[in-house]
């Protein structure tokens, strides 16, 4: 895995409480200073109100492997940025119990051009769905079911 340079900072945040993606994004942009890049791409994922089988969802529970999850997100983000020649990357991911409609994931990538920025966001989302130690459990009707696989792209 490539080592992130100070010029291409990787910011990873695992959040146990609800967060406002636009506020987090604004704080991240401020932290990078006035010299923004020409292109920036974002993705916000929210918890849908139904389970995989179509029942009303009470909450989504997200279990993770503390320590490894942060390290793995950082490694995936650094590798993705290096592959696409992108710059700064932000990954924020909720853990714990998440209500329908709440944000679960925010990915933001800066680059010189739209192509690398957009491609890195999409690829990183797929990477973290399959290669970061997170497990979803859907709560509905008072009982929890571990989610067997990821939703289609």
């Amino acid at each position: 895995m490539p080592t992130p340079s100070p010029k291409h900072p990787i910011v990873v945040q695992l959040l146990e409480a609800p967060f406002e993606p636009l506020e987090l994004l604004a704080a991240w942009q401020r932290s990078l200073g006035a010299a923004g890049t020409a292109a920036e791409s974002h993705f916000i994922g929210r918890v849908r109100p139904t389970t995989a089988s179509g029942e009303p969802l009470e909450a989504l529970e997200l279990e993770h492997y503390p320590g490894m999850s942060e390290a793995q997100l950082r490694a995936l983000a650094g590798a993705c940025a290096a592959r696409h020649g992108a710059g700064a990357v932000l990954v924020a991911h909720r853990v714990g119990r998440i209500a329908p409609g709440e944000a679960i994931v925010l990915v933001a990538v800066q680059a010189d051009r739209r192509g690398p920025a957009l491609r890195c966001v999409q690829e990183l989302l797929e990477d973290l769905k399959h290669h970061a130690p997170f497990w979803k459990r859907e709560w509905s009707g008072g009982s929890g079911t571990w989610v067997a696989g990821n939703t289609p792209l």
């Binding site: 994922g45 399959h130 979803k136 989610v147 696989g149």
Partner: peptide, 9 residues
Amino acid sequence: AFLPPITGG
């Protein structure tokens, strides 16, 4: 660690 199928994001 033994990790069941991952469902992140």
